[in-house]
């Protein structure tokens, strides 16, 4: 092992997952209750900071984009167009710093899924994974949702192919977004649990919303980060991922393709282990949680850096610190739990 700066070594040996756990709690608190404490961050954030939550200190860029696109072609070239560009710029200013780590560390809906995973683990139930085929097939859904949430609002004021879209289809994704229904519950607000009987469109859309909330809860209980896999925000982020300052890179020559990284990846990204060519290894489903870097036992094979400054590198010393040490207390603890034969 080559000589490393003491501080760097300390970081590389650290447990990022534990750090992430606490950051997520703090972020969740800020993005669900921050508004009550007069925290005001910004609208157009690259996460589900949902304005339907009363305490939300910011706004999710997806609702912004849907609102702004609910306009006519001609106004797109004028004042509206400028507004659209400014909000995209706001989104990017935030996004550029954290890249997809917004998903891994900040997004309250992402955090909620991780907590549901913890709950499942508490019961000792196994998780499921998509097989390779389904993974490939299903992964396009988020892009389809993204395209729809852009086209549908445009289709209300303008008609595509002469198909009229009712006004009830405004902000179509928000209507089916589980965050709108679930996150307000944390402030005691149950008002989003309802079906709007105004007309057929609203009935359909609000029912879909209820369904998606239910699927969200069940789905994330059986599969880690179930919803993120379909999240259009994640698709949108990925389009800009390359320009971000936070990067995750891989040195394929150092990789033994042991698959450790793939095993621990909550979203199940196969390329993280198998791709030995790409340098930039942030894939569209990645949330930059760094679990893979923690699990990689080869020095400097996977790396996370910010503007070229290395932040967290895979190291064998770190690996054995995290995975190899036998903590007998922990073992006794395990023994106490009844799940012996699970």
């Amino acid at each position: 092992m080559q000589k490393k700066l003491k501080f760097k070594r300390y970081i590389d040996n650290s447990n990022v997952s534990r750090f992430r756990f606490w950051i997520q709690i703090i972020s969740f608190f800020i993005f669900v209750y921050g508004g009550y404490f007069f925290i005001e961050i910004a609208s157009r954030l690259p996460i589900f900071s949902c304005p339907y939550v009363q305490g939300s200190p910011g706004g999710c860029y997806l609702i912004g984009i849907q609102h702004e696109l609910n306009t006519t072609w001609s106004s797109l070239w004028g004042f509206r167009g400028i507004a659209i560009l400014t909000s995209l710029a706001t989104f990017l200013v935030f996004f550029i710093f954290l890249n997809k780590a917004w998903c891994g560390f900040v997004c309250p809906l992402g955090t909620l899924q991780d907590w549901i995973t913890k709950l499942r683990k508490f019961f000792g139930f196994s998780f499921t994974r998509y097989d390779e085929m389904s993974f490939k097939r299903l992964k396009s859904i988020k892009y389809i949702l993204l395209v729809l949430l852009i086209l549908i609002p445009l289709g209300i004021r303008n008609t595509f192919f002469g198909i009229p879209l009712p006004h009830g289809m405004h902000t179509p994704f928000c209507q089916i977004c589980p965050a709108r229904i679930i996150l307000p519950l944390f402030t005691g607000d149950t008002s989003q649990i309802f079906i709007d009987f105004t007309d057929t469109t609203t009935i359909i859309m609000t029912s879909l919303g209820m369904m998606s909330a239910a699927i969200f809860l069940v789905g994330s209980f059986v599969k880690k980060r179930f919803f993120c896999f379909f999240c259009p925000m994640s698709a949108l982020q990925f389009i800009f991922s390359k320009i971000s300052l936070l990067r995750m890179t891989k040195d394929g020559d150092k990789c033994t393709r042991c698959g450790n990284c793939y095993r621990v990846c909550d979203v199940g990204i196969r390329e993280i282990a198998d791709d030995i060519i790409s340098k930039n290894i942030v894939k569209d489903d990645c949330m930059l949680c760094a679990k893979c870097v923690e699990a990689c036992p080869e020095d400097d094979c996977l790396k996370i850096s910010f503007a070229g400054i290395p932040l967290f590198n895979a190291s064998q010393e770190g690996f054995f610190k995290r995975y190899g040490q036998t903590d007998l207390n922990e073992l006794n603890e395990l023994n106490k739990q009844k799940n012996e034969s699970k």
Binding site: K121, G124, S126, F127, T256, C258, G259, N260, C261, R263, V264, K291, A295, P297, F319, F320, Y323, G324, L334, N339, S341, K342
Partner: peptide
């Protein structure tokens, strides 16, 4: 040389993790 990495320390994840290794 090669190591075992387990995500959830239950048999349902440990046995496949060992198998992968």
């Amino acid at each position: 040389w090669d190591t075992v990495a387990v995500d959830e320390w239950f048999l349902y994840d440990m046995v496949p993790a060992v198998a992968d290794r």
